[in-house]
């Protein structure tokens, strides 16, 4: 029966295409979920940094005008609306850069450590957003609209928050 070979061939091709589409759909879902999760982790690290900066302003820098400025910047970062969050976080980074932080002093050390964690969280978020955006752009994904469940992830564009010490 010459027809049998055709049937097997067509079925095989369909199976391969279907698995590839399933795999791709899973990949798109996973990358979007991860980008969203990394965004939440970055948010919580930013909150921790602002809180550590506020503590530093109220303790080590109490009575110092620079402390009042730092406290205001930390408050502004905590209260910022979504559309000016990036600018507020950059202001806080600039304020922190002006301070000579002492890594031996607990409140200063907390700010330095929190800033490093923000840098890590931001880098991971950026990498995951890039991967998700890359997956969205694939022709198969666009053709089958595999990304329709997910909103387009956005980068969180802030200056490198790492503080130099010493």
């Amino acid at each position: 029966m010459p027809g049998m070979g055709w049937v097997i061939g067509v079925v095989a091709v369909v199976v391969v295409i279907a698995s590839y589409v399933t795999w791709t759909a899973g990949r798109v879902d996973r990358l979007h979920l991860r980008a969203a999760s990394a965004g939440r982790a970055l948010d919580s690290q930013l909150v921790r940094r602002a809180a550590a900066a506020a503590v530093l302003a109220e303790t080590e820098l109490a009575g110092d005008p620079a402390g009042a400025d730092l406290y205001a910047a930390a408050r502004a970062a905590l209260d910022a609306r979504e559309d000016d969050r990036e600018a507020s976080e950059n202001d806080l980074t600039r304020m922190l850069r002006k301070q000579a932080l002492d890594p031996q002093e607990p409140n200063g050390a907390a700010v330095i450590a929190a800033s490093r964690r923000v840098a890590l969280a931001r880098q991971m978020h950026t990498d995951l957003v890039r991967a998700a955006l890359g997956a969205r752009e694939r022709p198969l994904v666009r053709l089958l609209r595999l990304n329709r469940k997910h909103t387009r992830p956005a980068y969180f564009d802030i200056d490198d928050p790492t503080l130099s010490v010493g």
Partner: peptide
């Protein structure tokens, strides 16, 4: 360890081994 903690927080999960046998 800070990188480990950041990676765990970024994904909000721990490692699981069983990805369905490689389809790639």
């Amino acid at each position: 360890l800070e990188v480990y903690n950041s990676a765990i927080e970024a994904l909000g999960e721990t490692v699981s081994g069983a990805d369905p046998p490689a389809q790639w």
